[in-house]
Computed example of a mutant assay.
Amino acid sequence: MYTDVLKNLETKMQKTINSYKEDLKTIRAGRANPALLDNLSIDYYGTQTPLNQVSTINVAEARLLTIQPWDVSTISAIEKSILQSNLGITPSNDGKIIRLPFPALTEERRRDLAKLVRQYAENAKVALRNSRREAMDAIKKLEKNSEISEDELRTGEQEIQDLINKYTAEIDSITKTKEDELMEI
């Protein structure tokens, strides 16, 4: 009976891990990566539109992204969005293409990015703990309604704790890998 609760919990925890990985893609690690611009949107004729829906984004070199808007009139809005995004990159344009040169990361910027990685990790862990609390409440409710026995409740609680330990360890591993990547460049 409580196995449905466990399956639901594992699905939620996997979604949390996937979301955390997506968040990490937005942190630049010294080289150009179009995923850094995934969360940017511009005011396109009165509508907030994702940048990748109004332009072509390419990696021209290891440390250079190019953005070619389909409508040249959006160049200033794209530049404004990039400057407000706190990416630490200053765009330049030639009237048709915006270039984003990625400077080498300074030691201070690396530390700031590592701190941001740890903040994202903590947010993911909080989401895991919230999922655990919901699952614990669900199986306690099953036991209260006499749908499962007290022994099944204890077994379920232990399995929930094992799941959270597994996914917390995975977050720690991903975090360590990303921090190492940031610090060695």
Rank of each mutant, 00 (worst) to 15 (best):
N130M: 04
A138T: 12
A114T: 03
Q161N: 10
I160C: 04
D162Q: 10
L113V: 10
E122Y: 05
K140E: 11
Y120N: 06
M136L: 14
Y120K: 14
D137F: 04
R133Q: 14
E143W: 06
E159Q: 14
L116T: 11
R132E: 01
A121F: 00
E150N: 11
K115P: 12
E134F: 12
L128N: 02
S131Y: 01
A135Q: 05
M136E: 12
K144G: 07
R129P: 02
I148F: 04
A138E: 15
L153A: 07
K141L: 15
L153R: 12
I139L: 10
E150Y: 14
L142M: 12
L113K: 09
D151V: 13
E134P: 08
R132F: 05
L128E: 02
A138S: 15
Y120H: 13
K144E: 11
E157P: 14
E147V: 10
A138Q: 13
R133G: 00
D137T: 10
N145K: 14
L113R: 09
R132S: 01
L128I: 06
R110W: 02
D137C: 01
Q158Y: 09
L113D: 08
D137R: 07
V126E: 08
K140D: 06
K140Y: 11
N130V: 03
Q119F: 14
T155K: 15
L113T: 09
G156L: 08
A114D: 00
N130L: 02
Q158S: 13
R154M: 11
L113Q: 08
R132Q: 03
A127V: 02
L153F: 12
Y120G: 01
A124P: 03
G156Q: 09
E150D: 12
A127W: 04
N130I: 02
V117N: 01
V117D: 06
E143F: 04
V126G: 09
E147M: 12
I160L: 00
L153H: 11
E157I: 15
E152Q: 15
E152V: 05
